[in-house]
Design a protein around this nucleic acid. Structure first.
Lengths: 145, 145
DNA sequence: TATTGTTATACTCTATAACTATA
DNA sequence: TATAGTTATAGAGTATAACAATA
């Protein structure tokens, strides 16, 4: 595949995630979530309790934005602010039981999509990123140019 | 492949789409575009000169939002407002030569897949994430379990 | 001095509602 | 009456900057 063809194919993969993301937003809304808030839940589910500064870096937003996002998550009962054990400047953002449930549902959905996309691939076959990409593009069907 | 292996593959693809999306946003910014403004250019590229009301319906936003979006596109030299030939209430939003160039670059790009995957789905039919996922997975072919 | 998180402020985007001109 | 597009207003989201507390 040419460089242009490769890049165009990546664009198509992105378009897929955009469309999926738009409809996922409606589902997130039921938990008082949007993309940014869900992203924080996702990060906490993987990193465990985190400082706001760490979340700011992870999401690529300013610390000020994290203040608002955590405020919203606290108000919806998904996280709490706990004192940091060794740094009195910082707070530890911690998932509540309900927050853990939501994080778990994210992981399940992620695993489900991964299984459906890659579930029949023999172990060790997709070694390079290009191979993974080719595989996904093949799954996009006969219209793949 | 293990569950972790599938997820690692998916994560790599998703990570790539994130990076690509950031790159695309930066590219759009050079033309004074964002997602909504680009969406209008894309619609005009396919519908031809259109009433603002038609664009509001196409984008799923209010007529007020279209006013602002078209203002921005006019200021960047991508569209003009022309009088509607038969309805003096309406204006025809029309691509300039430069707007046509941008629209053409879109046509060969990432939006092609979204059209190919969802172009024959009646508007509003895929309301839930599950419905969209099922539809996409059907299109993805034999791995669908 | 540097870092953590906050308050204050401003900007972008888009929704609702009221309005004018026209159909 | 209904429709096209505007102005007025409000809310969400996030950026920059100034600040206090702590490292």
């Amino acid at each position: 595949m040419t460089l242009q063809g490769w890049e165009a194919s990546l664009d198509r993969v992105l378009a897929l995630t955009v469309v999926l993301g738009q409809d996922m937003a409606a589902q997130l809304e039921r938990d008082g979530l949007n993309d940014s808030r869900a992203h924080i839940i996702w990060e906490l589910g993987h990193r465990g309790a985190s400082k706001q500064a760490a979340l700011a870096t992870a999401l690529g937003v300013t610390p000020r934005a994290i203040t608002s996002l955590v405020d919203a998550l606290v108000s919806h009962g998904l996280v709490t602010r706990e004192p940091h054990p060794s740094d009195r400047r910082a707070t530890l953002v911690t998932l509540t039981d309900r927050g853990e449930e939501v994080a778990h549902s994210f992981r399940v959905g992620h695993q489900e999509l991964a299984r459906r996309l890659f579930g029949d691939v023999p172990a060790g076959q997709l070694k390079t990123f290009d191979a993974v990409l080719e595989h996904v593009l093949d799954r996009l069907g006969p219209a793949h140019t």
